[in-house]
């Protein structure tokens, strides 16, 4: 069950957990921590986890948010799951490129492309 104060919109589709962010700015540490905890619970609930995170609503993120995404990546990997990122604004994608995290994450242009990649 999503939390009443959830920072996420969550949908399930064909064994894939689709996650969108409520907030346009993923900067605030308390929110980032909550996001990490919520996605962690979703990872633990799925066997194996197939997680798709869409950034379609996101204008800003910080290195703290990147850190949480890395922790999510490591957690999914430890459960032999799959993680995909999609719909990343070009400015935010540049942050991934500068930090070379575009080589760590599998990033797709669209939700459809990301969903297809799970098959």
């Amino acid at each position: 069950m999503p939390r009443a104060d959830s920072r996420l919109r969550i949908n399930q589709q064909d064994g894939i957990t689709l996650i969108e962010f409520v907030d346009r700015n993923i900067l605030d540490e308390a929110n980032i921590q909550q996001i990490g905890e919520e996605i962690g619970e979703l990872i633990d609930a799925a066997v194996p986890p197939q997680i798709l995170i869409s950034f379609s609503n996101v204008d800003h993120l910080s290195s703290a948010a990147l850190g949480t995404l890395i922790t999510i990546h490591n957690r999914v990997k430890s459960k032999s799951g799959k993680l995909r990122l999609a719909n990343i604004d070009p400015q935010i994608l540049e942050v991934f490129v500068i930090t070379k995290l575009n080589t760590l994450f599998e990033i797709h242009d669209s939700t459809d492309s990301a969903i297809a990649s799970f098959k």
Binding site: S62, S63, L66, G67, T68, I70, T71, H73, N74, V95, I98, T99, K100, L101, T103, L104
Partner: peptide, 14 residues
Amino acid sequence: LARPHGRGVMLIRA
């Protein structure tokens, strides 16, 4: 690369 910390100063410089 898979460490969750240590990117803040790098982003500032970038």
